[in-house]
């Protein structure tokens, strides 16, 4: 199964990746090549096989409901691309 260029473009929007034309062309070919490869697992018989959702050897991991000191304000905004007072700033959402 190959995805059309339009379908791959839709995936890029879903993933929020802007790709220029050259980049898209290169990615498009490789994407389908890899897709064809990973699709081969559908040749494997997994009748009556349960999926492995977790590799972690544990269940029921929780902590008690006790507050810890939050991050200091200077650390909260240490790496912020844009801030406005005590807020992170982003382009207007409509």
């Amino acid at each position: 199964m190959k995805l059309t260029r339009e379908e791959v473009r839709q995936v890029a929007v879903l993933a929020r990746l802007a790709l220029n034309e050259e980049e898209f062309n290169e990615l498009y070919g490789k994407f389908n090549e890899v897709l064809e490869f990973v699709e081969t697992i559908n040749n494997i018989d997994t009748e009556n096989v349960e999926p492995t959702y977790y590799l972690m050897p544990v269940q029921n991991v929780w902590r008690s409901d006790e507050a810890h000191q939050p991050l200091a304000p200077e650390d909260v905004f240490l790496d912020a691309p844009e801030r406005d007072g005590s807020f992170f700033k982003v382009p207007r959402i409509l």
């Binding site: 006790e66 507050a67 810890h68 304000p73 909260v76 005590s86 992170f88």
Partner: peptide, 15 residues
């Protein structure tokens, strides 16, 4: 483990 509080200064109950 950040405090669950309403009405704090913005971005102070964060980690």
């Amino acid at each position: 483990s950040c405090p669950n509080e309403f009405g704090s200064e913005p971005n102070t109950n964060v980690c």
